[in-house]
Amino acid sequence: MSVITVTRFTIEPDTGTALRTRHADLVAAIRSATPGLVETRLGQVDEQTWIGIWRWDSAEHLQAARRIAPDLPETTATFSLARAVTAADVAVVDEH
Rank of each mutant, 00 (worst) to 15 (best):
L19G: 10
S80D: 14
D46W: 11
L72D: 02
A69W: 03
G16M: 00
R55K: 12
M1T: 12
L72Q: 01
I11A: 05
D71I: 05
T5P: 11
F79N: 00
I11C: 08
A87F: 08
F79P: 00
I51G: 00
H23L: 07
A28W: 01
A77Q: 04
A69R: 04
T17Y: 04
P13A: 03
A77V: 06
L81A: 10
Q63E: 15
L19M: 13
A84S: 15
A65N: 03
E12H: 12
R22M: 11
I11V: 15
T40H: 01
Q63M: 13
T10N: 13
A69Q: 09
T40W: 00
T86C: 01
D46R: 08
E74M: 08
I68D: 09
T40P: 04
E47R: 05
I51L: 07
S32F: 10
W54M: 13
D57N: 15
T17M: 05
E39M: 01
I30W: 02
D46H: 11
D57V: 09
I68M: 10
L26N: 11
T86D: 05
V93Y: 02
G16A: 00
A59H: 11
R83A: 13
A33I: 03
A82D: 06
Q63A: 15
I4K: 07
T49D: 02
P35S: 09
R66I: 09
S58R: 08
V27F: 06
T76K: 05
A88M: 10
A84L: 10
H61D: 15
V3N: 01
T40R: 00
T49E: 08
D89N: 13
H96Q: 07
R83L: 10
S58I: 10
H96C: 09
L81I: 12
E74Q: 13
F9K: 01
Q63W: 04
Q48R: 15
A33V: 08
D94W: 05
D71Q: 12
T76N: 06
A59K: 07
A77Y: 01
A84W: 11
T7K: 09
H23R: 06
G43N: 02
T7D: 13
D94T: 12
S32C: 14
V38S: 10
V45W: 04
L19H: 06
L26K: 07
E95R: 14
F9D: 04
T15Q: 06
A91W: 06
T21N: 07
E74H: 03
T86P: 04
H96K: 04
R67D: 14
E12C: 07
A64F: 02
A59M: 14
S58V: 12
A24W: 05
A29H: 02
L37T: 11
D71C: 06
V3I: 15
A64N: 10
I68F: 10
G52T: 00
